[in-house]
Design a protein around this nucleic acid. Structure first.
Length: 748
DNA sequence: TCGACGATCGTTTTT
DNA sequence: CGATCGTCGA
């Protein structure tokens, strides 16, 4: 254990092993190292058994990393040490206590897309089109309840009584829940609420967990939702040995239910709690840290930390102004090449964007320059149709009650059991309070009882076939056959393989390859896990979607959304698309101050990933939804005091002209151009002052735009560099521009 | 029962 | 612009 390599605050965190503690750990402050050392200290010095420690994280990646690092510092068998995600932990608890909650051990975990399918069917049942009410609205409502820790029947206090407004939604929630129960299934949120319910309804069960886990640690605490908070409170109630580590400035998942209040409420719930701040940054240069600190200081909803670093001053941040989105990507590509030439490797560089859809252009530019790259978290293997189909078969085999799985594949490949038949069967199943497969089985056994639903003999024989197929697979599974064998049988016996082979299209070819890949994944799972079962494989892939293909031969530039970058670090970071309406996103701007603060945290996260050099790029004009937009640079750029950056016009159109020069004007102009009316102060943060400069295009003036032609100004706001206008063009189009960027000319 | 075509609508997604 | 979804037609 390397206590000596820790700083004072980190040491305190490690040594104060008893009692409640909250650690506010800034970006790059050695958070993981501290947590790892704390656990090692518990095990090695305090003699705590690994069996009694529970560390909860949000991602599998974080859990794995922590376990590996502990394993390499401590000379103890970590077998019983639980470092897992909230969801895996809860799944485990629910499986071992399944009898208490009316599920069987082999319950299925439904992912978001399956939840969506149920939401859709609930709407359809009511004759509501998805246009009137989006299934996402329904899911949002349900999710919201679950995030807050609600389960049917739970007493949540006064503010939860007003379901009246949403009577219909609440009814759908109840139906959704019973639909899950009927299928012996749980959704992601239900894993957490399920355990909460278990603990509340069965104090004896709770007690066993409280007694087992004497030491509780929670990573990424700022991302916990209310339900998880309550879970933590229950688990820690007895020993009070709970250590939560988080950073309110990196809370970027509030839209997923993360509740910053958990940070503020921790001390209320645990009045004895000690709070520590890890404020020394070991990752980034001084310039980057100070710049990022100035940006985040504008947020009001924070506890407040002052990050500092002993690292060298470092290079200035570069603000890169480009003519278009395309130029921006080309700039990134050429800069990446330049950095490579200077002796850096590709995997020291990363490109961050706000939305996944922005990756394509970056990819194009990198590919054209023959630069190796990897898109992190883009394509989702397990979301592919053919994969979901085969997995649905496997799920059904594991959990016979999985009605969703059955309805998905009963006619894939086509067996002549269409939607009408399925609808009839579903009604029967509900009427008889059975699962679909049970109903089917019964129908095979006693067809005369199903005369009233009028199913043709042809369809009946198809059903017979289907049922015996599934039964055969179930027998195979029960006989203890290995997952890979079960998979291969499934692919072949169901006719899926021959159906794809027969198609002979390019697409079918790709699908076959994907199935092969699924086979490889199963084989790998078998070799990694001694007693691999299909059940455990299915759980693993729904709860851990990180693809495990880690080949870093040549090194690759990493491309990812900023959300995906949390927890990572790179020497060189490019943030692309740093424009208003992109980043911050249009929606967040509309959402108001809270939305903007979250975007600012996102920007802060992006900045603090960079160790050596940060490039913040924006384009004057960008193609968006098939339209050229002039958004202007992100307000967050203007929140960085100019002394930390150099403003570089990489490729910019001449003022007022759009498609003019392609000449490179690498110059070091300052930000004065853009943010002339802002003042900076090192201590406190500055309000944007309104300018007294007159508008260049006052309301009513006639103008000509080099692309859209002539029009009239209908609205003007701001002045000088901030001036914005709304123009109604002669062809009727109404568009909004930032005067600074728009190729406009005044006519009268 | 499948496929072709038009209308629609655009965040982020640890689990 | 483009992916996705729903509707309609054969």
């Amino acid at each position: 254990m390397q206590l000596d390599s820790l700083n004072k605050a980190q040491k305190e965190v490690v040594l104060n092993s008893e009692g409640p503690m909250m650690v506010l750990a800034g970006a790059g402050s050695g958070k993981t190292r501290t947590l790892v050392t704390r656990i090692s200290h518990l095990l090695e010095v305090k003699g705590v058994s690994p069996f009694q420690v529970l560390a909860l994280t949000f991602s599998n990646k974080a859990a794995r990393e922590m376990r590996e690092r502990i394993a390499s510092t401590v000379n103890i068998d970590l077998g019983a040490l639980q470092i897992t995600t909230f969801h895996s932990f809860c799944a485990r608890v629910l499986r071992s206590q399944a009898n208490y909650i009316g599920l069987s051990k082999s319950f299925t975990i439904y992912d978001d897309s399956e939840s969506k399918t149920i939401a859709k069917s609930l709407l359809a049942k009511r004759g509501i089109s998805t246009k009137e009410v989006s299934p996402y609205e329904v899911l949002g409502f349900i999710d919201d309840l679950k995030n807050k820790g609600y389960y049917p029947g739970r007493d949540m206090g006064p503010e939860f009584e007003n379901f009246e407004d949403d009577q219909m939604f609440y009814e759908m929630f109840l139906e959704y829940e019973s639909e899950l129960a009927r299928s012996n299934a749980v959704d992601f949120g239900g894993l957490i609420t399920g355990v909460l319910k278990l603990f509340e309804k069965h104090p004896t069960v709770l007690k066993t967990y409280q007694e087992r886990f004497r030491y509780l640690l929670v990573d990424e605490y700022q991302d916990t939702n209310r339900c998880q908070f309550e879970l933590i409170c229950y688990l820690a109630e007895k020993t009070q040995n709970v250590c939560v580590v988080g950073d309110e400035d990196q809370s970027i998942y509030s839209w997923r239910g993360a509740d910053i209040n958990n940070i503020f409420d921790f001390e209320k719930k645990f009045p004895e709690a000690k709070t520590y701040k890890l404020e020394q940054n070991y990752r980034s240069s001084k310039k980057i840290i100070e710049a990022a600190s100035h940006v985040i200081a504008r947020n009001s909803y924070r506890k407040g930390k002052t990050m500092w670093t002993d690292n060298p001053e470092g290079e200035e941040i570069e603000i890169i102004e480009n003519n278009s989105d395309k130029d921006e990507c080309e700039f990134v590509a050429s800069k990446v090449k330049e950095l490579k030439k200077a002796g850096n490797t590709y995997n020291e560089m990363a490109v961050f964007y706000r939305t996944n859809s922005q990756s394509r252009q970056v990819e194009d530019a990198l590919r054209n320059s023959n630069i190796n790259y990897r898109v992190v978290g883009g394509i989702k293997f397990y979301d592919r149709k053919e994969i979901k189909d085969i997995l649905a078969y496997l799920r059904l085999v594991v959990n016979e009650k999985d009605n969703l799985a059955l309805s998905r594949i009963i006619n894939v490949p086509a067996r002549g059991i269409g939607t009408t038949t399925l609808r009839k069967l579903e009604n029967e199943a509900i009427k008889n309070n059975q699962s679909l497969l049970e109903t089917l089985k019964q129908m095979v056994a006693a067809p005369e009882e199903f005369k009233h639903i009028r199913i043709t003999t042809k369809v009946k024989s198809a059903i017979n076939h289907f049922v015996s197929l599934i039964e055969e697979l179930i027998i195979l599974k029960d006989s203890g056959e290995k997952p890979l064998v079960l998979f291969e049988k499934t692919v072949n016996e169901t006719g899926y393989m021959s159906f794809l082979k027969a198609a002979k299209t390019y697409e079918a070819e790709a699908r076959l390859e994907n199935l092969e890949e699924l086979g490889n994944a199963i084989a790998q799972f078998e070799s990694n896990n001694e007693n691999a079962t299909m059940d455990s494989f299915l759980e693993t892939i729904t709860l851990d979607r990180t693809a495990n293909d880690e080949e870093d031969t040549q090194g690759e530039v990493s491309l990812m959304t900023i959300h995906g970058s949390k927890g990572l670090e790179f020497k060189y970071v490019f943030i692309v698309g740093s424009e208003e309406n992109m980043f911050p996103s249009m929606r967040s701007i509309e959402a108001g101050e809270k939305g903007l603060e979250e975007e600012r945290r996102l920007f802060y996260v992006a900045m603090t990933r960079a160790m050596v050099k940060l490039y913040i790029c924006f384009a004057q004009g960008r193609m968006l939804y098939g339209q050229l937009r002039f958004n202007g640079p992100s307000r967050f750029i203007s929140e960085i005091p100019p002394k930390y950056y150099t403003w570089i016009k990489a490729k910019t159109g001449a003022r007022g002209g759009w498609d003019t020069s392609s000449s490179e004007t690498y110059g070091t102009s300052s930000s004065d151009d853009f943010f002339a009316d802002e003042t900076y102060d090192d201590e406190v943060v500055y309000q944007v002052q309104s300018s007294v400069i007159q508008a260049k295009y006052p309301q009513g003036s006639s103008v000509v735009h080099s692309l859209y032609g002539e029009g009239k100004v209908t609205e003007t706001s701001g002045a000088g560099e901030q001036e914005k206008v709304v123009i109604k063009f002669n062809d009727g189009a109404i568009k909004k521009f930032m005067v600074k960027f728009a190729p406009l000319e005044l006519l009268s």
